[in-house]
Simulated scan of single mutants.
Amino acid sequence: MRRLFVIHESPWSERARWALDHHGLDYNTVGHLPLLGEWQLRRLLGRQKERITVPVLAADGSAYGDSWEIALYADRTGAREKLVPSSLEGEVRHWNQVADGGMGGVRPRVLARMLENPKSLDAQAPPFVPTWARALLRPTARLVVRHLQRKYQTRSDGIGTNGMQLRSALDTLREGLKGNKRYLLGQFTYADIAMATLLQGVLPVSDLYLRLPPAIRDVWTEESVARDYADLIAWRDDLYERHRKAS
């Protein structure tokens, strides 16, 4: 059975799940614990010194180390319409890079807010930890968040450079959808998935598709940006309704 290592709320993990689900490929989901679980991913990927991130897919004797590689694997293995058609690969890759650039403006804010929100730290505990014991693990959760800040060299500057980085990506999306387009490239592709999941860092999608604890939803939400880009939120929600099964 395929194993998909994820951080549940991560937009990159959602991209990978969506690609596999689009093709109806079965897999077991494994929740990744940052810092603690990296040794296992290094063993799977054969990377001892490179930075390790999730999602990671272990399938058919191989390991795939990011959501783009996983989407290409899903296209090769599945039988449904390709998410990265060969004729559009360059354009899809471009939109994937735009989404990654926008996420560069989201991650610093999310990590900084987690350090300020004890309940969001509690939500990082593994599922088997009882609710009453989660507060006892907050020092460990803070250690993990600070590790992620160092790993990605993030610095939160509120609505400064980080906010501009996100808004620039959203402006690019708005321009790409001009003319009331349903899809960025005339058909449903991984470009739409990448940009739709970027909006997770503005206003997370409904719990119908991705259930989040309230504290996690709070740290991922940026209300002022959500108001300014309500049209893109509506586009994302429509895309989910038509192309994503309820969880």
Rank of each mutant, 00 (worst) to 15 (best):
K82A: 14
R93G: 07
S86W: 11
G90H: 08
W68G: 00
Y73F: 15
D60I: 11
D75G: 01
S62Y: 14
R80Q: 09
V84W: 03
Y64R: 01
K82P: 06
L72S: 07
A71K: 03
T77M: 12
W68I: 05
Y73S: 08
Y64H: 11
D75R: 00
T77E: 13
D60L: 09
G65V: 02
G78I: 00
S62F: 15
E89C: 07
A79Q: 13
A71H: 03
D60G: 15
R80H: 10
G61A: 08
G90N: 12
G61E: 09
I70F: 05
D60R: 13
R76Y: 08
E91S: 15
R80K: 14
G65Q: 04
A63H: 12
V92L: 10
A71F: 02
D75Y: 00
L88R: 02
R80F: 02
W68K: 02
G90Y: 06
A79D: 14
E89Y: 07
V84S: 02
R76V: 08
D60S: 13
S62H: 15
G78A: 01
T77V: 14
D60V: 10
A63R: 10
Y73P: 11
A74M: 06
S87C: 06
K82Y: 04
G90W: 05
S86Y: 08
I70C: 04
S67T: 04
L88N: 03
E81V: 08
R76A: 15
D66C: 05
E69D: 14
A79F: 06
D60A: 14
A79T: 15
E81H: 13
L83W: 04
K82I: 02
S62D: 15
V92N: 10
G61F: 09
Y64G: 03
L88E: 06
W68E: 06
G65M: 01
D66Q: 04
K82G: 06
S86K: 13
S62Q: 15
A79M: 08
R93E: 12
E81R: 14
I70S: 05
A74H: 03
D60N: 13
G90D: 11
S67K: 01
G61W: 09
E91R: 14
V92F: 10
A63M: 12
T77A: 13
R76W: 10
P85Q: 05
E69Q: 14
S86H: 13
L72M: 10
A79P: 04
L88D: 03
S67P: 04
L72D: 01
S87H: 12
E91M: 09
G90K: 12
Y73T: 12
S67W: 04
A71P: 05
E89A: 14
R76F: 08
L88V: 04
E81I: 02
S67L: 02
D60K: 11
A74E: 03
K82V: 07
A74N: 03
T77C: 09
A63L: 12
